[in-house]
């Protein structure tokens, strides 16, 4: 499965468009991490617990998008976009979407 945020796949021809596919996940970290993040808010700097959380969540969202693309018979997802929104305290929604296509080697 090819994932790309270009509108074309280099070396391939797009033979079929299968429409929008998407994947999303809402995640939270355990309270311990929230407390550490609260302390970091005093000292400043990177909140690595949250970075990790969002990284994992993003991978999960992309994975779900891939599953959806596979289900409609695509072999690539192009023009992928990400979006993040914080839903409630300590939780974030990660959303990935793109266009499922069938590509053929040139």
């Amino acid at each position: 499965m090819l994932i790309s945020n270009l509108e074309v796949v280099p070396g391939y021809n797009i033979v079929k468009h299968l429409g929008l596919v998407q994947g999303s996940t809402v995640r939270a970290k355990h309270v311990g991490r929230d407390i550490i993040a609260g302390l970091k808010n005093i000292f400043g700097g990177e909140l690595s617990g949250y970075t990790e959380l969002l990284q994992e969540a993003r991978e999960e969202a992309v994975e779900r998008m891939k599953q959806q693309a596979l289900a409609v018979g695509a072999n690539a997802v192009i023009n992928v976009r990400f979006s993040t929104s914080s839903v409630t305290q300590g939780a974030a929604e990660l959303f990935a979407y793109g266009t499922a296509v069938v590509v053929e080697e040139k």
Partner: peptide
């Protein structure tokens, strides 16, 4: 978004980098 004609691209893969960062008190 579209590579110029005349350049050859080999392989394409989505890459991402992220960071959560905070200001101090």
């Amino acid at each position: 978004r579209r590579p110029a004609p005349g350049v050859e691209l080999t392989g394409s893969e989505l890459v991402a980098g992220s960071v959560v960062i905070s200001v101090d008190y």
